[in-house]
Design a protein around this nucleic acid. Structure first.
Lengths: 145, 145
DNA sequence: GCTCAGTTTAGAATTTTTCTAAAACGCGTT
DNA sequence: AACGCGTTTTAGAAAAATTCTAAACTGAGC
């Protein structure tokens, strides 16, 4: 079975991030990174793990997602109250968010030019610039009754 | 008492939005709009109302904030999972969000130049472009233990 | 194989937001 | 000023997302 031979690439990635390569982290990392760029919610990932017969608690999924995020392996995108996605693409880029479908879509960083950033407040440093272009299916204005 | 004489300006604003000027909506509108640009959470506004001896249920605060938002009187800014603010400034502008303090700060629209927007997906239309510049107090890296 | 710090776990708890059904209200009409 | 009706408000329950807790478990070095 493939789940018994931890891919060296992922293993290295975890070690580099200072995270012990536990069974759960390896399994989740595989789900996250072996399938190209993805946008997943915690609940979703937990579901996928279950489907793949990997036993992981939801708390661990949350822990892992945050650890990966802190380590720079993931990026969190908050789109709505009570809705956030983790993006496996950590390169400089932005997002389309469709309010009708809830779907998120990458926009390559070069396609959005953000010019002349203003000075950040007092003793703070810029961590990141998030650009979210909110779109909506045509003919679906406001809170359609 | 001033709360008995509904300011005509606010009254007109509600009517224009097609919202019946009820006691609660008038009171909340006053709290929101009589104090310049503000960033408030539902919980906060509910608290302010209570302090001002205005009896409003939290559900009504949520309803009202959403109705105002749909009517274009407010703008919702989601900054973190489980944390969203309503901004009384609905002009074209963007935000600094300080992850250390949770504070939000306006950036005039002209100060951030977003060039060449890519085509929105399939049958969708752009509703808005949100730019959030995430900052952090210096010397407070990642999830500092 | 032992040990220990780092992890995982189930479940409860917290937090934010929405829902529900009933009571209250605004407003045009009489 | 009372009437009637559709809109609002309300308290409380419910839902959804996330975090916490204390105990059990596990990876890595000795």
């Amino acid at each position: 079975m493939s789940s018994l031979d931890p891919s060296p690439a992922i293993l290295a990635r975890l070690r580099q991030a200072g995270l012990r390569p536990t069974r759960q982290r390896l399994a989740l990392a595989r789900l996250l990174f072996d399938a190209g760029d993805r946008h997943v919610s915690a609940e979703q990932l937990h579901g996928e793990a279950a489907s793949a017969a990997i036993r992981v608690s939801l708390a661990t999924v949350y822990n892992t997602l945050h650890q990966f995020t802190d380590a720079g392996l993931l990026r969190e995108v908050v789109v709505e109250p009570g809705r956030s996605y983790f993006d496996t693409n950590v390169d400089d880029h932005h997002h389309f968010f469709c309010e009708s479908s809830g779907r998120l879509q990458d926009i390559p960083g070069e396609m959005v030019m953000v010019g002349s950033l203003p000075q950040p407040p007092d003793g703070t440093a810029i961590r990141r610039v998030d650009v979210i272009i909110r779109v909506r299916r045509e003919g679906e204005p406001e809170t359609a009754a």
